[in-house]
C-alpha cells in the first residue's frame, strides 16, 4: 500500500523534526548557565542561543520538513496519476 508507506515516511520526518525541536528547546532552557562558559561573538553562548540560535534552528526545521513533505507528495502523485 503506497498510502501507508507514505504515512510511515511522514511520521518518520515528523518525529525527527520534533526530536530536534525538543532537543534545542530543552537544551537552551536547561543548560543555558552551562553554555555560558563559551562565547559567541561578544555574547555569552547561552544568551546567544536563546535570542538567536534557537530561532534559526526552528526556522530550519520548518523549511526542511516542508521540503521533505513536498517531495514525498510529488513522488506519490507521480505513482498514482490523476484520473
Amino acid at each position: 500500500m503506497t498510502a501507508t508507506r507514505y504515512w510511515r515516511s511522514v511520521r518518520l520526518w515528523t518525529v525527527l523534526g520534533l526530536l530536534l525541536w525538543f532537543g534545542v528547546t530543552f537544551g537552551v532552557s536547561w543548560w543555558a548557565p552551562v553554555l555560558d562558559a563559551w562565547r559567541i561573538g561578544s555574547m555569552p553562548a547561552g544568551y546567544w542561543w536563546a535570542t538567536q540560535g534557537a530561532i534559526g534552528v526552528y526556522l530550519l526545521i520548518i523549511v526542511v520538513h516542508g521540503r521533505a513533505m513536498d517531495r514525498l507528495e510529488r513522488r506519490e502523485s507521480a505513482r498514482a496519476p490523476a484520473p
Binding site: 520534533l18 525541536w21 528547546t25 532552557s29 530561532i55 526545521i61 520548518i62
Partner: peptide, 13 residues
C-alpha cells in the same frame, strides 16, 4: 521569545 517562535514548529509539523 523562545515560546512564541518555537511554537511554529508544532504548527508546521
Amino acid at each position: 521569545i523562545l515560546g512564541w517562535t518555537g511554537g511554529y514548529c508544532l504548527v508546521a509539523l
